[in-house]
Design a protein around this nucleic acid. Structure first.
Length: 272
DNA sequence: ACGGATGTTCGCGC
DNA sequence: CGCGCGAACATCCG
């Protein structure tokens, strides 16, 4: 459940779920979702907590509660929050749960345990080093093409690898880096250092377009990889190798860049 | 049955 | 120090 659009959806959903009732009880199994000592803090400090605000920075969810308790949650590759009535069945791979006054239960489910939850007391989550290390968030800060070009031009890595670097731009992963570069007509293996002002403008537009499209799409569809059967691929080029490019009809190809599969159109996105 | 999957982090070698 | 690469994490799906 991971890149910016899905995390933004999770933030909005959690905001609504936690708006009414305070947390009555917090429980979690001992898993590596929690770093050292985190589980005890989770169970002890979230009991009785009332939501103040939910923020998102890149792929990080930041839940702040009255009294200075903060919960940071990264969904990793397969994490998601699920709401159940207290009487309902426990969803698969529930790793932690927030029992709300009123009966609903919010489960953090994560089969592969790549996600993480941290509880912090007495500080602003936005000041955490892991949050401050993030680059600008496209929805919160917007994307400044000049700043993007400056950050890209300082590295010789492939532009797609650089776009997935959360310190460059917060929130893009394999799907949206792939989509944005197709929009921008830039080959994913091009050295980031070769990106010029005009390229950066098109990449910024490409990111905005692919994020906007995803935010306008039902979350079950953007999560089609995890939802599995029956959900159509909502993306233009991601996971579409062998199909025609939606712009020029040339067959989309795939290659491996930075260890990740990358789909691209060999005509629209010429090799470096 | 095998291979790959939306992410992050670590170790190793150059 | 930068960077590439592979592995690891644990599970599901086609």
């Amino acid at each position: 459940m991971p890149e910016l659009p899905e995390v933004e959806h999770a933030a909005r959903t959690l905001r609504a779920w936690l708006a009414g009732a305070p947390i009555a009880r917090a429980r979690a199994a001992p898993t590596r979702i929690f770093r050292s000592g985190g589980r005890a803090l989770f169970e002890r400090r979230l009991a009785g907590a009332r939501l103040e605000r939910v923020d998102r920075r890149g792929k990080m969810l930041l839940l702040s509660f009255e009294g200075g308790v903060g919960l940071l949650c990264h969904l990793g590759m397969t994490g998601k929050w699920v709401r159940r009535e207290g009487s309902g069945p426990v969803p698969p791979h529930s790793r932690a749960r927030l029992e709300l006054a009123g009966g609903a239960v919010l489960h953090y489910c994560d089969p592969r345990l790549f996600g993480r939850i941290e509880v912090h007391v007495g500080l602003d989550l936005l000041t955490l080093p892991s949050v401050r290390a993030l680059g600008p968030d496209p929805l919160v800060d917007g994307i400044d093409p000049s700043a993007l070009r400056d950050r890209l031009s300082r590295t010789g890595r492939a532009v797609k690898v650089a776009l997935m670097d959360q310190a460059v731009i917060a929130g893009a992963g394999n799907i949206y880096a792939t989509e944005a570069l197709w929009h921008a007509r830039i080959h994913p293996a091009r050295p980031a250092s070769s990106i010029r002002r005009g390229d950066a403008v098109r990449i910024a537009r490409g990111l905005e377009a692919s994020f906007a499209a995803a935010l306008a799409t039902p979350v079950e569809e953007i999560a089609y990889l995890s939802e599995g059967r029956g959900v159509d691929n909502p993306f233009l080029v991601y996971d579409r190798a062998g199909e025609p490019c939606p712009r020029c009809r040339r067959t989309i190809e795939k290659t491996t860049i930075g260890g990740r599969t990358s789909a691209f159109c060999p005509r629209c996105q010429r090799a470096p």
